[in-house]
Design a protein around this nucleic acid. Structure first.
Length: 499
RNA sequence: GAGCCGGUAGCUCAGCCGGUAGAGCAUCGGACUUUUAAUCCGGUGGCCGAGGGUUCGAUCCCCUCCCGGCUCACCA
């Protein structure tokens, strides 16, 4: 914990502001952290109303608007001053004039600091340079800011501070604000799209006794009263499919998953996925659905289906390319076809490439290994990769013609997996065997066999397809953000030192 | 978990072969009634990430640790 601010605070800039605030209260009768102030105009609305008007037009407008916001820049000339202040909707210039405000009020204004939150009111004018401005008739200090903001020109570059003190980042980095607003819009648009297609949003347990539905190490926690260990979920999948058994035909959940794995520019321990399940649909239906949804979300939020990610142009206009895993690996990854068809040759290929297989892998596992190491990053996409090996897809329905593969696809864009979907395995006996095999192989993250899920399947789950889309990664793509930490407001970091 | 890079004033950054700390912005004082990174003059401000070592002397060299970034591994 940090010490509360005191006059002894080592930072002289903070000390100065505290003293200034005390003086304002004592000498200038400033209210102490007032609660009530009624603003009636957002900056964006003000700009929309008057932005196009000429200086002459505005001279005739005497309507007084009440604003509130944070002081971001001050340019002072003795008896008159300009500031910029910002609210949630934008940034606006205000003109403070001694002749207009009077001696006392102007003296108070001169004591304001960058970062202070003020209420101010006045009528619109345009300055000589044509900038829409409030001609201030009065103002009030609403909240004193005791800590100095980063400088106006270079802004905040230190990633550590940007992530740890996101509030500062949001104040001074317009791109951060717009990225997080875009994230909100993207999630809203997805939700609207799902709702519009008859999907029902549900919430399933975050705390689970068996962490199933994916292969990843879970976080462990404990309930005291029940004296029971619990896992934070790694996926909602098995619960959502229980709902299909229960009679919901289209369900989705947008929420957090927790995976106790490494951290990188593409991985945060808690991340957001949408998972959705549709009865009486198969994975090919979901390919069409996915390309329609993502492209229309892009159109809605960005106004275009053509985006650029880190300099790389991507066209999200459907339909998207489709490739089997084997063909993609051969055609795009440049892997000889027999290395994808013969286990011994696959093993030899892996060893030759330094992939260090353990030697007991099945052909399917080797195929995935080869695909991931040679081909994934070449999938600029958007491209659907289908026909995954059965061994690496424990929850997917086997293909009817070829049981060595499953009816599954993953969506890749700029070499990254954005979505994973498949026709659901609803044969309880097959499912039991595949679970048992996973347990047998002691796959990491497989805690124990979820017998209740098998029991649910025994009641009968309708034929269905389901999909998970990584929201954070989708937002990265659509906001051109290089790191997942740029699209998560408060990414997980080590406990930092406040100094 | 491994490798590489980084941490110097509130912020953004310099700091040479080891000689005891600098700039811009912010801040404080002064001038200034239409500025746009306002301008001009003068100041304040530093546990040089932490600890240890080498040295007459360490921001600088060595070791350990902490925090961050990137790449890789695990994963999505």
């Amino acid at each position: 914990m940090q010490e509360p601010l005191t006059l002894e605070d080592v930072n002289h800039l903070v000390k100065q502001r505290i003293e200034k605030f005390e003086a304002m209260k004592d000498e200038l009768g400033v209210r102490h952290f007032p609660n009530t102030y009624r603003k009636d105009t957002d900056i964006s609305a003000f700009a929309a109303s008057y932005g196009e008007k000429t200086a002459e037009d505005l001279q005739e407008i005497e309507t007084v608007h009440f604003f509130a916001g944070r002081v971001m820049a001050v340019r002072s000339f003795g008896k008159a001053s300009f500031i910029h202040f910002q609210d949630a909707t934008g940034r606006l210039q205000a003109f403070f004039e001694k002749a207009k405000l009077g001696e006392d009020s102007y003296a108070l204004f001169r004591k304001l600091d960058i970062g202070d939150i003020i209420g101010l009111w006045g009528a619109p004018i345009k300055t000589r340079t044509g900038e829409l401005t409030v001609y201030v008739e009065g103002f009030e200090l609403l909240t004193k800011s005791f800590r100095p903001l980063p400088e106006k020109w270079h802004g905040l570059k230190d990633m550590d501070i940007r992530y740890r003190q996101r509030y500062v980042d949001l104040i001074v980095t317009p791109e951060a604000r717009s990225t997080f607003l875009a994230r909100t819009k993207i999630v809203s648009a997805i939700r609207a799209y799902m709702d519009g297609n008859g999907f029902v949003e549900v919430e399933t347990p975050m705390m689970q006794t068996i962490a199933g539905g994916a292969t990843a190490k879970p976080f462990l926690t404990h309930h005291n009263t029940l004296d029971m260990d619990l896992f934070l979920r790694i996926a909602p999948e098995l619960y959502l499919k229980r709902l299909l058994v229960g009679g919901f035909e289209r369900v989705y959940e947008i929420n957090r998953n927790f995976r106790n794995e490494g951290i990188s520019t593409r991985h945060n321990p808690e991340f957001t996925m949408i998972e959705f399940y549709q009865a009486y649909a198969d994975y090919t239906d979901l390919m069409r659905y996915t390309e329609e949804m993502i492209s229309s979300v892009a159109q809605q939020v960005l106004g275009t289906m053509k985006v650029t990610y880190q300099g790389q142009p991507i066209d999200l206009t459907p339909p998207w390319q489709r490739y089997t895993l084997k063909d993609a690996t051969v055609d795009l990854g440049g892997v000889p076809r027999d290395a994808m068809e013969d286990r011994e040759k696959a093993l030899a290929f892996c060893r030759a490439r330094g992939l260090e297989p353990e030697g007991n892998e099945s052909l399917g596992e080797l195929q995935l290994l080869i695909f991931e190491s040679t081909t994934e990053d070449k999938l600029a996409g958007p491209v659907f990769v289908t026909s995954y090996p059965t061994e690496v897809s424990p929850l997917s329905r086997k293909n009817t013609e070829d049981p060595s593969i499953v009816d599954r696809f993953e969506l890749f864009i700029v070499g990254r997996e954005i979505a994973n979907a498949f026709s659901e395995l609803n044969d309880p006996f097959d499912q039991y065997e595949r679970f048992a095999r996973q347990i047998e192989k002691k796959e990491e993250g497989t805690s124990e066999l979820d017998e209740d899920y098998i029991r649910a399947l025994e009641y009968g789950m309708p034929p269905a397809a389901g999909e998970g889309i990584g929201i954070d990664r989708l937002v990265m793509l659509l906001t051109d953000s290089p790191s997942i930490r740029d699209v998560i407001l408060f990414p997980l970091l080590r406990k930092g030192d406040l100094s």
